[in-house]
Amino acid sequence: MARKTGQESTGNTPPVDPKAPPAAAQAPEAAACGQGETCSYVHIFQEWCKGCGICVAFCPKHVLEMGRNQKAFVARPGDCIRCYLCARRCPDFAVTITEELERIRQEGAES
């Protein structure tokens, strides 16, 4: 029996608890635009966030804030410039930005 490869694990069942509220739902701005996930480039995976505050402190546009549950949430999704610094500095792999993969592949080829 072969071990699982990454291609298998990326697609099917993500380790998301369906009961957990989406990150953007806690922010009033995100809630106002209807579908939080589609409005925001940046997403915080609340299950894995430990609340160290690194993403909040080093976001150049102050998109993120600490919530009352000591976890980060997307407070101003419209300000995100997709610099990817929060996603790269997150020690817990909790922050992700859509279309990040292409961007990093490009940068890797250049550096």
Binding site: S9, T10, P14, P15, K50, A94, V95, T96, E100
Partner: peptide
Amino acid sequence: MAAILPYEYKYLRAKKKFP
């Protein structure tokens, strides 16, 4: 709606060991 995960996810043993 598909959950959006870090792309590093494909290199992680995410289901068993995380956080």
